[in-house]
Design a protein around this nucleic acid. Structure first.
Length: 811
RNA sequence: GCCCGGGUGGCGAAACCGGCAGACGCAAGGGACUUAAAAUCCCUAGGGAGGCGACUCCCAUGUGGGUUCGAAUCCCACCCCGGGCACCA
């Protein structure tokens, strides 16, 4: 006899959920057999940043959607591994710690404890044996190890790069912290550009692969599009503008066909050739301009469509197509980090070049006209035009011209086909405290020396005052006793790198760690990794579509190339969930519209809340959070509760059985595609049918009608389903049972409603046997009084028949 | 500016490949039960018009056009909302 509540008692979520939370721990229901699983299924959800505020409904929405899928796969027979961890390093945690004046080392464990408790209450099928935190030395040991692998492969290098610097905060700012050129925290202080030495990972070497592989991944289209745009592939040509003094200016263009209209050349102010090209007369003006640009912050430098500024270098270069001499300018609208840092300006057909040419009175020559012979107002840009003023290419279409001009310049050795990517190398240096120290030592004699792997981890030392200061280096640079070390190579005087690495490096490999958290001598165990990876299902927000997912793919690709992994793509299937907003705006503390799940779970129970979030709207779209409809879900669960209280027995009638199998088909299809809202609606419909059949609570409820319902409900409302399952005299967990089998024969309708249209307008609905043929359907339709009236005795010109759906008579 | 999403009753939404627009739920109105209330159960319900009535007709998926026997769905132009990128040559 199961020790359940008496069947006559109402559903009490608090009691049911407390009982099953305990049970699952006791029985180790959610622990995966990592070494013996026959059908491993890695169900991953993006791990949270453990903020001080705790979980908000957006997190719960995301996790529950992933959990439902994992539970569903388990019921389909898979051995599901569903781990969780905490992304607890980074500027986010550090800034908060500074604000509340508490050390992050103290704050983070507290936040994690709170998150853990909240997550448990949500009822996720998490295997807590493999919890991790990126701040744990056992974890960042291997983050540092990964850095070393990249370093050894020549994919990590230190170089100078411009950063945003706030003279008031005396620290480096991320682009997001610069508001219209001013510091976020000091609105009166202009942010300036400062050049600092930084570590970069050469992700650009992988641009083509990262792009090409996207085609083969089973990922949300929206996410793939974001990645594709971020990588930003452009096909074009590298053209050479030679100078009389012997220098060659290489420009990148996607429109080599317009080269005849290139009336001047522009270099980025930082371009290395500027120095050599600038004439004596122009030197002071050029230097003044370059200084001015260097003073600007990176963000306002990148704000487009402002007034164009620039300076003439005094030098000229030869247009490779026309042979004419064109002036060489410098201007800040040309960016050093894209292409070659130099452009050919075609002011007739490029808006920016046109603005610049107009401002500095440079010649503007149209070289394209429209196909219909007209020339719109300048500037206009089209690829669907015809070349003019272009020598032997006149009359050629732009598309043909792109090929022909490139070929022609190639034979003259003045051009080559070229592919450019927008993707930049990944700067992983942070002049901050709260992160894994970058494992490098600088020796006076040996230079840059990686920390030997056996000396890892480089422990982040305790530091009372971790506030960044004016030095532009990490607060760790204040700890001389920490950074002063002997060189691992020669034993001479050396110092540690004091920068820490980017949080995105922590999160770029955490999925590799989960199955292997019990190994402290390796980042990931080969056997475990082979069994469980790549990840079978990954669900997360599109806010991480670019950085996190791109970096994870990159790190995986590198580890694959270095022979550490057998696969080069980490996530076989990725689905982006939607965002839960409140009153039309993203939830944020500053807006004061954060919805906390705790009170809802306390009032309604986790199961009702889980289901309600899923019923709100399409999972992959998200929606606005309101709680008006939550009682509807509770009413539904109460109804199911009542059904499981009815005596079990009897034989199902055909209508109920048909509806059951139609529901199984619908729910199964929907779960596979994460259409949780419509799956819930289908189960509600089924329950409405069952209740009509078994109105009288004393009547018997056939086992084969109620059990499949409980199983289908289990992914959504796991505690509830366990309790119902037990009420139906089962002793094992519902999750050790199996998904109901769909029987197509039983699901088949015997009768259908055939829509009869006359000239496309519905005039009748006939109940007919399923599978009726066109002649019979037409005969019956024509016999219908109402249809007759609209046909008006005339002959039918055309009959359109869609089997079991519709008959359209055209007269 | 460019690239993605999205716009359907009072509200959240559904509608698979172009085939009954509004499933499912919330809120609402009416009724049953109750001393009463809550809970529960039953009924009604896009808008308009006609009819005592079973019922019938017309209009309706952001706006305007198009394709089609038939359009929420496809095409063209535009408006609004959300997100991403943004002087990327």
């Amino acid at each position: 006899m199961p020790d359940t509540q008496s069947d006559t008692q109402p559903y009490d979520p608090a009691a049911v959920e407390a009982k099953w939370r305990e049970r699952w721990i006791e029985r180790r229901t959610n622990a995966a057999d990592l070494d013996g699983a026959a059908e491993p299924f890695y169900n991953l959800m993006m791990f949270p940043y453990p903020s001080a505020e705790g979980l908000h409904v957006g997190n719960v929405f995301a996790f529950v959607g992933s959990d439902i899928y994992g539970r569903y796969r388990r019921l389909r027979g898979a051995d599901v591994f569903e781990p969780i961890g905490f992304d607890a390093f980074g500027i986010h945690s550090e800034n908060y710690a500074l604000k509340v004046n508490t050390h992050p080392a103290e704050l983070i464990p507290r936040n994690i404890a709170r998150f853990r408790e909240q997550l448990r209450r949500v009822g996720l099928m998490v295997d807590w044996d493999h919890e991790l935190s990126t701040t744990d030395p056992d974890y960042y040991h291997w983050t540092q190890w990964i850095f070393l692998q990249l370093y050894k492969a020549g994919l990590a290098e230190k170089r100078a790069a411009p950063v945003n610097w706030c003279p008031m905060c005396k620290t480096v700012l991320a682009n997001e912290q610069v508001i219209d050129g001013y510091c976020e925290r000091h609105p009166e202080t202009r942010v300036i550009q400062r050049v600092l030495e930084q570590w970069f990972f050469k992700i650009t070497d992988f641009a083509a692969r990262l792009l090409d592989n996207l085609e083969r991944l089973d990922w949300s289209d929206s996410t793939r599009t974001l990645q594709r745009n971020w990588i930003g592939k452009s096909e074009g040509a590298d053209l050479v503008f030679a100078t009389p003094t012997g220098q060659e200016i290489h420009v990148f263009t996607t429109r080599p066909d317009t080269v005849f209209g290139a009336t001047y050349v522009v270099l980025a102010p930082e371009h290395p050739l500027v120095e050599a090209l600038t004439t004596a007369e122009q030197r002071s003006a050029v230097n003044a301009y370059r200084r001015k640009v260097a003073q600007m912050d990176l963000v306002s430098r990148r704000v487009g469509s402002k007034d164009k500024t620039g300076e003439f270098t005094g030098a000229y270069a030869r247009n490779p197509a026309t042979g004419e001499s064109v002036p060489i300018w410098i201007a800040d609208y040309v960016l050093m980090e894209y292409g070659t840092g130099a452009i050919m300006a075609v002011p007739a057909h490029d808006e920016r070049d046109h603005e610049f040419a107009t401002a500095f009175e440079l010649p503007i020559i149209p070289v394209v006209r429209m196909r219909d012979g007209t020339t719109p107002d300048l500037p206009f840009t089209t690829r669907d035009g015809v070349l003019v003023n272009s020598g032997q290419f006149d009359g050629m279409s732009c598309e043909d011209g792109i090929r022909a001009v490139t070929d022609w310049l190639e034979t003259k050795k003045l051009g080559t086909r070229q592919v450019q990517y927008r993707l930049h190398d990944w700067c992983i240096s942070r002049q901050r405290y709260w992160g894994p120290p970058i494992p490098v030592i600088y020796c006076d004699t040996c230079g840059t020396v990686p920390v030997p792997e056996e000396d890892l981890p480089v422990i982040l030392p305790p530091l009372e005052n971790f506030r960044p200061d004016e030095s532009g280096v990490s607060p760790l640079a204040r700890l001389e006793e920490w950074y002063r070390v002997p060189c691992p190579k020669c034993g001479g005087t050396a110092r540690r790198e004091t920068d820490v690495s980017d949080t995105f490096l922590d999160s770029s490999w955490y999925f590799l760690r989960y199955p292997s958290t019990d190994f402290d001598d390796r980042a990931f165990d080969p056997a475990r990794t082979t069994r469980w990876l790549p990840v079978d299902s990954y669900i997360g927000g599109n806010e991480h579509a670019v950085l996190h997912l791109m970096y994870s793919r990159f790190i995986t690709m590198v580890l694959h190339d270095l022979g550490h992994l057998k696969f080069e793509e980490p996530f076989t299937r990725f689905r982006a969930h939607g965002t839960i907003v409140k009153d039309g705006a993203k939830m944020s503390k500053s807006r004061g519209n954060v919805v906390v799940p705790d009170e809802y779970i306390a009032q309604w129970g986790a199961d009702t809340f889980r289901m309600y979030l899923m019923f709100l709207g399409p999972y992959q779209e998200g929606g606005d959070f309101r709680d008006e409809g939550i009682s509807g879900i509770r009413r539904f669960l109460d109804k199911v509760w009542a059904l499981t209280a009815q005596p079990v027995g009897g034989t199902p009638d055909d209508d109920a059985l048909r509806k059951l199998h139609q529901t199984i088909r619908k729910v199964t299809d929907d779960l596979q595609e994460l259409r949780y809202n419509t799956a819930i609606a289908a189960m509600m419909e089924y329950v409405n049918v069952l209740r009509q059949e078994g109105q009288d609570a004393a009547r018997e409820m056939p086992r084969e009608l109620v059990e499949p319902l409980v199983v289908m409900l289990a992914p959504f409302a796991p505690h509830f389903a366990e309790e119902c399952w037990e009420r139906l005299w089962h002793h094992e967990s519902v999750f050790d049972g199996s998904w109901p089998a769909f029987d197509a024969a039983l699901a088949k309708d015997v009768e259908i409603e055939l829509v009869v249209q006359v000239n496309g307008k519905v005039r009748a609905r006939l109940t007919v046997p399923a599978g009726i043929n066109e002649e019979e359907a037409t005969r019956r339709a024509l016999a219908d009084e109402h249809v007759k009236r609209f046909i008006d005795g005339g002959p039918t010109k055309k009959v359109i028949f869609v089997k079991d759906r519709l008959l359209n008579l055209v007269v």
